[in-house]
Nucleic acid binder design. Structure first.
Lengths: 200, 200
DNA sequence: ACCTGAACACCGTTCAAGT
DNA sequence: ACCTGAACACCGTTCAAGT
């Protein structure tokens, strides 16, 4: 009980963790800078020593989210190296599960942070890692004849859009319940992705 | 200058219009109940005579948006009755343009309103109209052999997810600019939807 | 029935001050 | 360098009161 004059040595990360917890417990509308500070045990002005503003904290939470998503997808990809089409399906399923497991965090990751391109380079970087891994998986599928030849980036964006759209529509409860009664989200995903594969 | 003791006969719709204007001019973060009231020329408490809370106003703005989207898509569909695959492409393009034309309104339509299922039946109704029109277009394409046979609802959700995902990723600037330099959003859309059509 | 003005609790942000 | 407390402008919501 001597050295740390203040609260932590790493308030910045404590604030990010507090934000993630609040998102999980109370949703997007519960995420206020003052509540984050309270949960981290500091005054409401303390976060400004580490983040320029609320947008900046949200960018940090999003970046953290993209890195975790990358880890999960990478694990799924490594588990299915021998079967490229299944590798694609399983990584997509991991993406969908990431979204449904923690909807508020997923929403924050894909909204809110405007003009990121210039303002938050780590955010852009973390997001790009996921995209590039998808491009690699697509290229493997193409090389082994499971996906049609052509620019891998084009195919990757189409597939990402399909998976992301399914996640977004599911989170917003836009998928008719008559469909959800007959098919699991996983079935819907598999069905949507089947169209991309080469028939043989 | 005699009969209307107060401001309008139709404050409710004036508030919705004011909200839509603010969204277009200032984005989602600019949409406050007090600013909406100010723009409509009433006190900040007046909206509560017509809407239970801010969520309820947002639900009304979203419902209005879905009805306008329906009109635009219906017009596009009618213009391409003779060519089912092009009908599908053009309605999808209309959806994508609706999103990019007024990003803040589109974001509000597909977020924010939680637990709608029970709370805002007109919202669910307006959203369902769009889905049902898509199912009809898909059925026409199937009947004429342009889409594979099978449950039209499954194909419709896949296609909707692809188009919606493309719109969402574009709005969040998640599509790499290297891709956007080479391909217009319309090209990306056409490329993604080509995979659904029967090859022949 | 429809609207106003005051009031309350909450929020993001700034800033002088403390260690 | 890192944090606090007071202050300011803004917000959503309620409520008594006015027509």
């Amino acid at each position: 009980m001597s050295k740390t004059t203040y609260h932590h040595g790493d308030l910045k990360n404590a604030l990010i963790r507090a934000g993630v917890e609040i998102l999980a417990e109370q949703g997007v509308s519960g995420l206020s800078l003052r509540q984050v500070a309270l949960r981290a045990g500091v005054s409401h002005a303390a976060p400004y020593a580490h983040f320029a503003d609320k947008q900046s904290l949200i960018a940090a939470i999003s970046t953290d989210g993209f890195l975790r998503l990358y880890d999960e997808i990478k694990t799924a990809a490594n588990a299915h190296r021998t079967n490229p089409p299944q590798q694609l399906l399983e990584t997509a399923r991991t993406y969908l599960e990431f979204a449904t497991k923690d909807p508020a965090r997923f929403k924050v990751m894909f909204s809110g942070v405007l003009e990121q391109e210039k303002e938050y380079p780590e955010f852009v970087e973390a997001s790009k890692k996921n995209y590039e891994m998808l491009v690699e998986i697509v290229q493997t599928c193409q090389a082994e004849g499971f996906l049609p030849t052509g620019p891998a980036e084009l195919a990757a964006i189409s597939i990402w859009a399909t998976v992301h759209g399914l996640a977004a529509l599911a989170l917003e409860r836009q998928i008719p319940h008559t469909l959800l009664e007959q098919h699991s989200r996983r079935d819907l995903l598999n069905h949507a992705l089947q169209t991309y594969f080469v028939k043989r």
